[in-house]
Computed example of a mutant assay.
Amino acid sequence: MPVSYSKDLRERVIRAWKAKEGSQRQLAQRFKVSLSFVRNLLSQYRTNGQIEAKRRGGYQKPTIQNEHLGFIQSLVEEKNDLLLRELCDRYAERTGISVSISTMHRAVEKLGLRVKKKSLCQRARYPKSTRIKT
């Protein structure tokens, strides 16, 4: 995975640009970086005065907030044989937020609880004797 250029290099590029030691293209060649890096760095510097690298990667806020975990725990304790799909449906009814089964599974795991994964009708369709063994 690529790494951001050091703060020292960024400072040297900015100092050279301020001292008018060459064009953006010449600065890129001098410091052995791409022209787009120099352009973006100068643009960022002019806009907000910062030269630090931007934060890499994104942070996605969890769909199920911590304050809703208590509600999920009460649903499971109330009726512990709920399927994950049923738990998702009840969560959506109460909060108005629709979540996937895998999201609900992660929330249940975070709470250290266990729920059913398959309904009886799903198990009846595939009895153990007819399952393919690997």
Rank of each mutant, 00 (worst) to 15 (best):
L113F: 15
A28T: 10
F71N: 14
S43G: 15
L82M: 14
L75H: 09
Y45F: 12
R46A: 09
R39K: 10
G57L: 06
E78H: 10
S6Q: 10
Q29F: 02
E93N: 05
A19N: 10
P2G: 03
K118S: 08
A53G: 03
D8I: 13
R39V: 06
D8L: 08
Q65K: 14
E93F: 00
G58Q: 15
M1T: 04
K20D: 13
I14T: 09
R106P: 07
Q60W: 11
S119F: 07
A124N: 12
R15M: 04
P2N: 07
K18N: 01
I97V: 11
K128L: 14
G49A: 06
L9G: 01
Q29S: 01
T134W: 05
K7Q: 09
R46S: 02
I72G: 14
L9D: 09
I97E: 10
R39A: 06
R85S: 13
K133F: 06
K32Q: 13
R15Y: 01
Q122V: 01
R30S: 03
I64H: 09
I51G: 11
V76A: 03
T47Y: 11
R30L: 06
D89P: 00
T130I: 03
R94D: 06
G58W: 10
L120D: 12
S100H: 02
Q26N: 02
R85F: 08
R85I: 04
G112D: 15
K18M: 01
S119G: 15
D8W: 01
Q44N: 14
N66G: 08
N48W: 08
C88R: 02
P127H: 11
T130L: 07
K117P: 01
L42H: 04
R12G: 00
I72M: 12
K117V: 13
I64S: 08
L83A: 10
Y5H: 04
K118V: 05
S98A: 11
R85C: 08
I64C: 09
L27G: 08
G57D: 15
L69K: 11
Q26E: 15
E67K: 14
T95F: 05
E77V: 05
R90P: 02
T95Y: 07
V3C: 04
E86K: 07
G112L: 03
K117L: 11
R125L: 13
R114T: 06
R131I: 10
S98F: 01
R39I: 04
Q60H: 15
N40P: 00
I51V: 14
A19H: 01
K79L: 03
S129T: 13
